[in-house]
Structure formats: structure tokens, C-alpha cells
Design a protein around this nucleic acid. Sequence first.
DNA 1: CCTTGCCTTAAAGCCGACTTTAAGTTGTAG
DNA 2: CTACAACTTAAAGTCGGCTTTAAGGCAAGG
Lengths: 161, 161
Amino acid sequence: MNSVPQLTISELAQRVGLRPSAIRYYERIGILLPAQRIRGQRRYDLTDVHRLAVVQRARQSGFTLGEIRRLFFGFREGTRASQRWHRLSRQKLAELDTLSDGIHTLRGLLKRMMKKCRCDTLEHCGKRILENGCKQGRRPSLPANNRHNRRHKPVRRTVNA
Amino acid sequence: MNSVPQLTISELAQRVGLRPSAIRYYERIGILLPAQRIRGQRRYDLTDVHRLAVVQRARQSGFTLGEIRRLFFGFREGTRASQRWHRLSRQKLAELDTLSDGIHTLRGLLKRMMKKCRCDTLEHCGKRILENGCKQGRRPSLPANNRHNRRHKPVRRTVNA
DNA sequence: CCTTGCCTTAAAGCCGACTTTAAGTTGTAG
DNA sequence: CTACAACTTAAAGTCGGCTTTAAGGCAAGG
């Protein structure tokens, strides 16, 4: 049924554009469930690929690994826990909205700087941010640096398969 | 002319929601120009406030400090440098667009998870990301962690002045 | 049999972005 | 005169997110 039943760790890594070490790390911290093993070695299938696709997207969008675990893989069924999950999600949704806003603003700033060139643009933008920026939506919550993946070799994803 | 001619470092910090140590750090790494000093102590004015407003917004939107320096404060006039700047900006604009996309996707995923509840939603989303996600816009470029600002005391901004 | 290649683990290292600490200066109030 | 608050610096520490290293296992091929 699954076109790719068993992937080794480095095959999986290849597909999602990560390195094996990152995948092991994700397992350790509970982003991935302990993988099935065959003679001691981890094996994965397509559901893992999909899961990691979401993880990657989320990381790139500024989610921390903690948030990813809580929000995407942290819904247990108990009403208690589920309530907590809903609270967290609502919170994160709000954050995402203000984040979108911020990105929009900066996109605009960058574009204006490319045309009109120069500092008053910047100064003026800072002023605007301060003024209207006081609409206090819980600000995001910067995650951590992934630039490693650039410092070290880039890990190009396999285009498909 | 400027309603607030001289701010001490902690006054400035207060206004932009940073701690003094962060501001000194920004000066060290060239995000802020060496501040004017009066009897050895740094003094700031409104243009610094505005500058930091932009910096903050950019940090929250996932820019690294390096990018912020290069993109917002790194346009020198030489045609050579200016070309480089334009290249970087265009690149970052593209990144911002794919980032917006990603955020949109995840927002959708989170919302669907709140309604329909559960994993197939997630699985399905992963699949979609993999399929169309291969439109290879240079992915962002995660910056680093600011959660410190939460671990340590939050530093509430002064509402205005 | 031995090399090659990919796997394993635990532990240490690294980078970005700050914060904390330690030690010292300065201006003001009591 | 002293105490205090708020500043200064350099250096060390911290945290998240990985990567690298060191030491070893195991199957396939020559």
C-alpha cells in the first residue's frame, strides 16, 4: 500500500532535507516517536515523512520544537489536556496573525527602501511601528537558529520519489 | 525639536521592551552606532527608539541580527555595495513571501485541528506540503532564540510618552 | 579475513543572541 | 562621609537546536 515501506534514517533525512543527526535528535526530544528498528537500525515510512514535512514547515515559520510537539503532537484526549491544547492553539493562532502583520510591514519597508532609497523611510517606519505597534498582540517568540544547516552542507531534498 | 532629547540606556530599553544588556550587545555587534556619551554614560534620542522599533519587529519576524544589519543599516552608497544590497533585499523579499505562505498553511492546519480534531488532518497536511512544497523558494533561515526574554523577566514596554 | 559503508550511542562542541557576574566609577541624598 | 542607585567593562554562562567526535556493530564484496 505504501509505495515506500522502509526507509533508513539517511534516506528519510534526504527526503525531508535534514541530516540524520537531526532526526535522532528529534526522536530524543519527543518530536518523533521511537522508530521501529530492524537489527538495531531505525526504519521509517511515509507517515514519518509527512510528519517531518509539517515539522520542517513549522520550524521555518518560527515555531520552536517545544511548540511543535505541544501543538501538533500534544493533543491527548482527556478533556483537561484537550482544554489546555485549545488554549495553546488559540494563543499561537493569535501570534501567527501578528507575525503575519510584522512580516507584511517589513516586506513593505524593504520594498520602499529599494525604490525611494534611504533612512527617512526607515525612520518613518520605526515611528509607525511604535505608534500602532502598541496594539499588544502577544508577540511571537523567537525560536532558535537553524542557520547551521547553511553553515554546514545544505542538504538538498530529493525532488520526489 | 525632539520631545525626548536624552534617554539613558535603561530608559531606552524600557521604551522598546529590551534590557540594557541587549542594547549594549547591539552596539557591540554594530546594530546600533556607538552611542553619544555624557560622562561616560550612553545617551539616546528618538531616532534610536525608532531604529530599535524596526529591529524588534524584524527580530520577531525571524530576521537574524546579521540580516537586520545588512538589510536595514547596510546600504552604503557605492554602486558595488548597493548592488549587493539590492540582491540581498530581493532574496529576503522572496524568503518573506514563502514564509508568509508557510505561516498561512500552518494557521490553516491548526484551525482544522481545532475543529475536526486529529491526526489525519496532520498527515494530510504533511502530504500537501511535500507535494506542492517542492516549489523551491529559498526557505527562510531561522534565526535564534529570544525566548530568553520570556525565561527571564518579560520587560513590559512603556505604553507611550 | 578484511575493508567499506552505513548504522549505533553518549558526550562534547558550536553558534546566535543574549544575560549574568564581578569589579569598578559617578552623582545625589542623608 | 557614607550609602545607594544607576551606569561602565570584560568575561563567563545559558539556552535552543543541532553537529561533530569517538568508539563500536554488522552485512556485503573482494
